[in-house]
Nucleic acid binder design. Structure first.
Lengths: 132, 132
DNA sequence: AGCACACATGACGTTAACGTAAACGAAACG
DNA sequence: CGTTTCGTTTACGTTAACGTCATGTGTGCT
């Protein structure tokens, strides 16, 4: 069975982050480990959130933005109004991401073209070198 | 005719950036405006580079990474070895971008799913409210 | 008891990408 | 000629996301 509670070290090993990072996320209210005396114990919920945090970061979302998204992902107990608001945020974020994907596609195409040009140029330069 | 040289203010208005930004980019050797006395005058080449800089930034590329890409984009006068190196950087960057695109697609799919779930939940909540 | 070890809490340091303020030169305008 | 208007340099301030001590505490071995 996957232990239901994990120490800070187990978390670090599992997700490859430092203790400092986990404490920082707690301070920023992204995680809510329970306390056993002085020590932190991370729940299954915390692990779920951390997974999403790390993915969010890979796209350059700020921690603050991620916090808003997390609210959306855990909206089970929210009131209607609150849920509506978080959905709205999610829609905005979705559009932003789609726009970003479009731009990314553009940039990829551009870069590809440049690389082809570069290869061609390289080929011609090498040909010259051989000739000389 | 598009003026071949632009003042810092014209640049700012055209690209929606601050003078500080342009001076900063010059200090970082991303732009090379010529000097008329004390003042900067930006060339067509600077405008091209700035456009690419701004696009790069939208993907979270650091200015340093962007500088390397710019070298690739303006490699006409490079030596073979240098060109080969910049091409290599470009290839790496391309793979990174493609990977990022894949992750972005994943995240978009996830978010879409969550939003559908949210809408459904909202609908059922509203139905309850009407019933009550 | 003595000691290592895991964890905790400050609090200051770091990097990137500018913002912002001070202090000055040149030019254009009334 | 005085003063806005642009522009310049120098330099310190700022935010995000942690890193890196310094210092303190509770726990389990031996």
């Amino acid at each position: 069975m996957t232990e239901t509670l994990m120490t800070i070290r187990q978390m670090c090993d599992t997700f490859n982050v430092t203790p400092r990072t986990l404490r920082f996320y707690e301070a920023k209210e992204l995680l809510f480990p329970i306390r056993e005396g002085q020590k932190r114990l991370f729940t299954r919920r915390d692990r779920g959130r951390l997974k999403l945090i790390l993915r969010g970061k890979r796209f350059g979302f700020s921690l603050e933005e991620i916090r808003q998204l997390l609210d959306l992902y855990h909206a089970d107990d929210q009131q209607t109004t609150q849920l509506a608001k978080t959905c709205e945020i999610g829609e905005l974020r979705l559009r932003a991401m789609q726009a970003q994907r479009a731009e990314l596609d553009d940039a990829i195409a551009d870069l590809k073209k440049q690389l082809e040009w570069g290869s061609a140029k390289l080929a011609s330069l090498r040909a010259q070198n051989v000739a000389a």
